[in-house]
Computed example of a mutant assay.
Amino acid sequence: MNGKRTLSLISASLAIGGLSLFMQTAQAQMGLPDAVKVPDGNKVMMETVGVGEITYECRDKVDAAGQTEWFFVGPKAVLNDRKGKAVGDYFGPPATWQARDGSKVTGTQVAVSPASKGDIPYQLVKANPADGTGAMQGVSYIQRTATKGGVAPASVCTAANKGEKQVVKYQADYIFWSAK
Rank of each mutant, 00 (worst) to 15 (best):
M1K: 11
N2T: 12
G3N: 15
G3D: 13
T6N: 15
T6S: 12
L7A: 12
S11I: 10
L14V: 11
L14W: 09
I16N: 08
S20A: 15
S20H: 13
F22H: 10
M23S: 12
Q24S: 14
A26V: 07
Q29M: 05
G31L: 04
P33N: 02
P33M: 02
D34E: 13
P39H: 10
D40Y: 02
G41I: 05
K43S: 14
K43N: 11
V44N: 01
E47H: 12
G52T: 03
I54C: 04
R59Y: 15
R59F: 08
T68G: 12
E69C: 07
W70P: 01
F71V: 05
F72Y: 14
A77N: 00
V78F: 14
V78M: 12
N80A: 15
D81F: 12
G84A: 01
K85R: 08
A86I: 06
V87L: 09
D89W: 08
Y90A: 00
F91Y: 12
P93W: 10
W97T: 02
A99V: 03
A99T: 00
R100I: 13
T106Y: 04
G107R: 02
G107A: 03
T108G: 01
Q109I: 14
S113R: 06
S113P: 01
P114N: 10
S116I: 03
S116Y: 11
G118A: 05
D119P: 03
D119K: 00
P121A: 13
K126S: 07
K126W: 04
A130N: 00
A135Q: 14
M136F: 13
S140W: 07
I142V: 13
R144F: 00
T145Y: 13
T145I: 05
G149F: 05
C157T: 04
C157S: 00
T158C: 04
A159I: 15
A159R: 14
N161K: 03
N161G: 00
V168Q: 10
V168N: 07
V168R: 07
Y170Q: 10
Y174G: 02
S178Q: 10
